[in-house]
Simulated scan of single mutants.
Amino acid sequence: MHNAFPRLPLPDVAFDAVPLARPLDWVGMDGMTLPVRVDGADGVPMLVPAAVDVAVNLRDPAARGIHMSRLYLRLQQALASETLGAPTLRRLLDACVASQEGLADRARLRLRFDRLLLRRALRSDNAGWKRYPVEIEAELTEGHLRLTLGFSVEYSSTCPASAALARQANAQRFSEDFAVDPAPPAAAVRDWLESESGMIATPHAQRSRAELRVELRPVFDELPLEPLIDAVEAALGTPVQTAVKREDEQAFALANGANLMFCEDAARRIAAALAADSRVAAWSVRAAHLESLHPHDAVASVSGRNPA
């Protein structure tokens, strides 16, 4: 049986009169879940889940709203099919502006996802996956693309003050244990060092986290996430490890001994690495040492802008 009444067009209140008309800085959607295509560890592209925010400006005061579904559909198609990079983001933001048919002339996009990188052990032939939280912000204004890359790195920090106090306590025990023999043979000293008496105090160390935001120069098309992570971890010297054997753990202990640092030292090390990077226009760093001595964190922040 057919409906005798004709199908009416669907109402669209977007064209209703606008109360309190004025342009709006940004209108869009936050917290969309979409797949993003990134380069995998072996160079083969892979899809990762991401939280996505998108917005455009509404420059026409007489327009009630923007075309949100058009933004969503363009993002869904482009992020899953094109490998993430500066050219992809520029094309996508251009498409977001064009989809509004004159309602907007600016667009911005924020992506948050976890990047997995396969990292080699320090000495053994093992390797393991490490997770790096990533946030990418892209904004297109008057044809100019601004890209900001945020990520965090976990590392170990051994307190210099605690190390000095531990050395002093160990030296004092040595003096006490060898008081009757001011010139002990090397074998006796070695045996003592390998015994529990040879290390009555140890410095405190803790897992620590560096959070970074880097504004990239527009002349580069890449999103240099992995090279920047490598540079930061090299500057710190003690990135946390995944798959380890005893030889790796010993190498990690040696790295901590060679890289004693307060949170202030860590922030300065990272700042020096970013200040020397030609891909970076501006940067900010927050180093947080999740104290094992105290029930609170020690933190240091620094920011800067590199010469043009």
Rank of each mutant, 00 (worst) to 15 (best):
A161R: 08
A163N: 00
A169N: 06
A171M: 13
A171V: 09
Q172K: 13
R173W: 09
S175G: 10
S175H: 11
S175N: 12
D177Q: 06
F178R: 04
F178H: 10
F178D: 02
V180W: 05
V180S: 15
P182N: 07
P185K: 03
P185R: 05
P185G: 03
A186R: 11
A187H: 11
A187D: 15
A188F: 09
R190Q: 15
D191V: 07
W192I: 03
L193E: 15
S195P: 07
S195W: 10
E196S: 13
P203S: 11
P203G: 09
A205Y: 01
A205D: 02
Q206K: 03
Q206N: 15
Q206E: 14
S208E: 01
R209T: 11
A210L: 04
E211I: 03
R213Q: 15
E215L: 12
L216E: 02
P218A: 13
P218C: 11
L223I: 14
P224G: 07
P224A: 06
L225Q: 05
E226H: 07
P227D: 06
P227Q: 05
A231K: 07
V232H: 01
A235H: 06
L236V: 05
G237Y: 01
T238F: 00
T238A: 00
T238N: 00
T238Y: 00
P239Y: 02
P239L: 02
V240K: 05
Q241C: 04
T242G: 08
T242H: 13
T242Y: 10
V244A: 05
K245E: 03
R246W: 09
D248C: 02
Q250K: 13
A251I: 04
F252P: 01
A253T: 08
A253C: 11
L254A: 14
A255H: 09
N256T: 10
G257I: 08
N259F: 12
L260T: 05
L260Y: 14
M261Y: 09
E264F: 08
D265H: 12
D265Q: 07
A267N: 02
I270R: 00
I270H: 03
I270T: 04
I270D: 01
A271M: 07
A272R: 15
A273S: 13
A275G: 06
A275S: 09
A275F: 04
A275Y: 01
A276N: 12
A276F: 10
A276R: 14
D277G: 04
D277M: 09
V280K: 06
V280L: 11
A281W: 04
A281M: 13
W283Q: 03
S284I: 05
S284T: 04
S284R: 10
R286D: 02
R286S: 12
A287V: 10
A287L: 10
A288Y: 00
H289V: 00
H289D: 03
L290S: 09
E291D: 14
E291Y: 08
S292L: 02
S292R: 00
L293A: 06
